[in-house]
Design a protein around this nucleic acid. Structure first.
Lengths: 295, 295
DNA sequence: CGATCTTACGGGATTCGTAAACATA
DNA sequence: TATGTTTACGAATCCCGTAAGATCG
């Protein structure tokens, strides 16, 4: 015998229209049914809410005081429902993404732009961080989705999409290696390189490729971020190796980038979420666009 | 298939306890029933609210965002119910009273004090005004209840309680009429009187009593409020006639008051409400105390 | 295997609509 | 009398509890 939103809706309608008959039409209800609903509400509140006469219906003083607050409550509830529908359909909401800086700066802007075109209601939060941080952010649920390189080993992470990202050699435009039709590992075995630190997925790929030939890269300098490495290359410290997706970096003036002709020279890119956690529909929509862009 | 408060309560409980089983106990519900409720809510919102596994229940991000606002809504609703119960029982609320100034200043303070003793939650708003204003305030529903004198003729006003208020002759303590054992109309027929204006109920009674003897009162001065008339009496302009209930006025220094021994010398006091409007329980409680005090 | 959520189903309560009764201007 | 609310009652729906099924650690 407790309060029900149906009762509240009935009350608000009758109070506004001052008529059971008209309120019943508005609610697509028979008028006797409405009478019963109001009676139940009055019973639940232990309050008379209307003074009925055969000619008119007037709201009680208690009812008058209750009306605006109940009206507001209904509005809130209805707003929640509408909002939830939109969120459930992925038309509304924020997508929280953790991404390696290389993707955050290159691929992500285009994906987000495309996403906003199809789903204008979406908001995006991007946290750029190194792979370990990306995974941590996903596991702690500070983000919905993570974009990271290398293999995903944590059993608490579930890959949603994977793709290969070819690695390119980046060198000054005037460098003689630019004359080759095809660049292969053996061509750069002894050239000094500027590489990101060993914790990064690109560096892991490079080290592994060299190791397969029983060699180690000649590291002229080690940096944390790719942008720094690029600056070093332009300064003449050596060459570097970047993922193909890092378009922004490759567009640096005075530098050129060419893919290395070796299937080993690719890093795996994984989009992951926390296992056993459902992806918010907004993130789902993002994932779809993102996966398409990475092909 | 619309949203229901029962669903919301289920959601909040499960979200807080992170367990269907424990939430079901809390809600005095079987656990399968809870599952169904949550499912219906998710259907109604078109949103997944929980990520269930056989070992744990986690709130979805959408659910986490919904939780506080729905919790607040429930609190509001529950507060409304509690408040309504109290108002319906007359333990809470404000009583709006329109009263003739004579009652407002004499009887009303005691009644309100008594009322606050039995119903500490009640608040009181008193508007003191002449009879015509009292009736207007009742009809316009600016007050719940009106206390007025004379007969109530308006068919839109409904008398709730009526009592007689003996009229007293008020005279300076030294006045010779004070020596009489009983004061009757014939004793004052020719004495100059200070009377309130003809629109007041006391004046109507006085005029009618004189008219029954084919006489008219000798009006030394006419005032609107009783307090003014009393001041005039003390100044020696004449005697006046006041209702017995006006204790405050009778307590004036240097004056005495004695009832007039004539059944016609009483004014009728009516407590009225607007016809076809129910009395708020708070006003009902007040009425009870008030009627008892007026006996 | 054990704890937990989900599905299936019968019984009970609630709600609805139709029809008739009731009340008041 | 006419308009509008309330009561009565049968049908449909919803909700609950029990029991069996499914799932994951």
């Amino acid at each position: 015998m407790d309060l029900n939103l149906r009762h509240v809706r009935a009350f608000v309608s009758v109070a506004q229209l001052k008529s059971f008959t008209r309120a019943a039409e508005l609610l697509h209800l028979s008028q006797p049914a409405l009478t019963v609903q109001i009676r139940k509400l009055e019973d639940a509140l232990h309050c008379r809410l209307f003074d009925r006469s055969s000619r008119s219906v007037e709201v009680t003083r208690i009812g008058r005081e209750l009306l605006p607050v109940l009206q507001r409550t209904l509005q809130d509830i209805d707003a929640i429902v509408v909002d939830s529908h939109a969120q459930g359909a992925g038309r509304l909401g924020t997508v929280r993404i953790a991404s390696l800086p290389s993707f955050a700066a290159s691929l992500l802007p285009d994906v987000i732009l495309a996403c906003r075109k199809t789903n204008p209601g979406l908001g995006f939060v991007v946290r750029d961080a190194v792979a370990s941080q990306v995974m941590r952010l996903v596991l702690s649920e500070e983000v919905d989705i993570g974009i990271t390189g290398g293999d995903v080993v944590d059993s608490e992470l579930e890959p949603l999409h994977q793709s290969q990202d070819r690695l390119c050699l980046v060198f000054p435009s005037a460098h003689p290696i630019g004359k080759r039709r095809s660049i292969q590992l053996k061509d750069i075995l002894d050239l000094p390189l500027v590489l990101t630190d060993p914790a990064t997925s690109v560096r892991a790929v490079v080290d592994a490729a060299y190791l397969a030939l029983g060699r180690q890269p000649v590291v002229a300098c080690e940096t944390t971020y790719m942008m720094t490495a690029v600056a070093m290359v332009r300064a003449g410290l050596g060459l570097t190796i970047l993922p193909a997706s890092a378009r922004e970096i490759r567009a640096e003036r005075g530098l050129r980038a060419r893919p290395i002709d070796d299937p080993a020279f690719a890093r795996q890119v994984s989009i992951v979420k926390k296992r056993n956690r459902s992806l918010p529909p907004a993130a789902e929509a993002f994932l779809e666009v993102c996966a398409a862009a990475m092909k």
